[in-house]
Design a protein around this nucleic acid. Structure first.
Lengths: 206, 206
DNA sequence: TGTATTTTGTACCGATTGGTATGAAATTAT
DNA sequence: ATAATTTCATACCAATCGGTACAAAATACA
């Protein structure tokens, strides 16, 4: 379905559709949805507007496909950190992983999902709602993982999994913003380490 | 200087300039700089475009004046929290104060400065730079306060004031984003409390 | 060789963007 | 009363926004 379906008939497409989508993702990643214009997109993708609309529908659908591409990456922050058995390692992995991934120079800085909520006035309400739904889906994964830890007796008595998940989310958002503003890997690693230390000593049994 | 200077000659201005600026701040607060259009501004301020340009210069200068108004409020988060003597109370006051202020229903949710960096493509570079400078000024206030605490022996040995200030900033940014996305006061208070607990137990002597 | 089909580039669409020219209206100073 | 001065509302500006009509170009099928 999603694989490259050969058109076979008619003039062949003159560009790599997956590569073009990746370029589009990079632009949205840097500028957000509203902050990105069609001309910026077509220039980065190396195609003209009619080609963009024929291949991706419109700006909104292109954005959704780009975000899908972003979220379905195998080396996702969550997928890696969730492989750990002990919740302490999960928390450390998430925070240190965020610091590393948000400052990775091979793509724009920060988290694409978090950056995308920037610059969404009420005109593009569907964009805002969709991104919010994606984010709350990720937050739910955190809640589920921390509830599992609670059931397994890894958390201190007073620790509410929902609150812990919100705190982790807040830290991701802060780390993402600081990365987008130019913070270095070293800086964010220190911040993530201090945050993890505090969270673990108070909320996780040792 | 900044008080209402009567023009005395010519047709008198038909609107309250301070009230209009406050309305402008509210719009920028909600939608960011790029996300706010002149028509939204004039509608909220109850004036027409030529009046806006005559009174405030242009959109950029209006934004700066609105941000000045925001930052010079007497009940600023920092001003209140910095009144505490012990750094532990300062940290608690900052985080709990942020939770309270960012969800205050008498004005838009979140922090106006943090929200304003949303939706700033490279076109409005001066806006981005100015807001960044303001933010780093606030961060410096945190660094200075934590260095004072370090000199007074309130901090644990390994705790770097700069890192602690960055962590606090990250938490502000996260709390602001969650408030803007609709989080309740109760939610953010719990998050702030958990964050403060972790920070204090690890980094502050008791 | 046509013919059907799809992509391509150009040139355009109405709407909105930030910003202004202009003249009438409203006030103080003379 | 008249002149000087300032603000007002209307109507406009070029540039850009997201999106499209159209015909030439490039391929597969007959």
């Amino acid at each position: 379905m999603t694989t490259t379906k050969a058109a076979c008939v008619g003039r062949p497409r003159g560009f790599d559709i997956d590569l073009a989508l990746e370029q589009a993702l990079n632009v949205f990643w840097r500028n957000g949805y509203e902050g990105t214009s069609l001309s910026e997109l077509t220039e980065a993708m190396g195609i003209k507007k009619p080609s963009l609309y024929a291949a991706f529908g419109n700006k909104e659908q292109l954005f959704f496909k780009a975000i899908d591409l972003y979220e379905n990456r195998p080396d996702s922050l969550f997928n890696i950190a969730f492989q750990h058995e002990r919740v302490a390692d999960v928390i450390r992995g998430l925070l240190l992983g965020a610091a590393a991934q948000f400052t990775d120079c091979s793509h724009p800085q920060g988290c694409a999902l978090i950056n995308s909520t920037f610059s969404c006035n009420e005109a593009s309400e569907s964009i805002k709602q969709t991104v919010l739904a994606r984010k709350s889906k990720h937050k739910q994964r955190l809640v589920d993982r921390f509830e599992l830890a609670q059931n397994q007796g890894e958390l201190q008595e007073g620790c509410e999994p929902v609150v812990l998940a919100s705190l982790m989310t807040a830290l991701f958002q802060g780390l993402s913003m600081q990365a987008s503003e130019g913070a270095s890997l070293d800086e964010l690693q220190k911040v993530a380490t201090m945050a993890a230390e505090g969270i673990l000593t108070v909320n996780v049994k040792r």
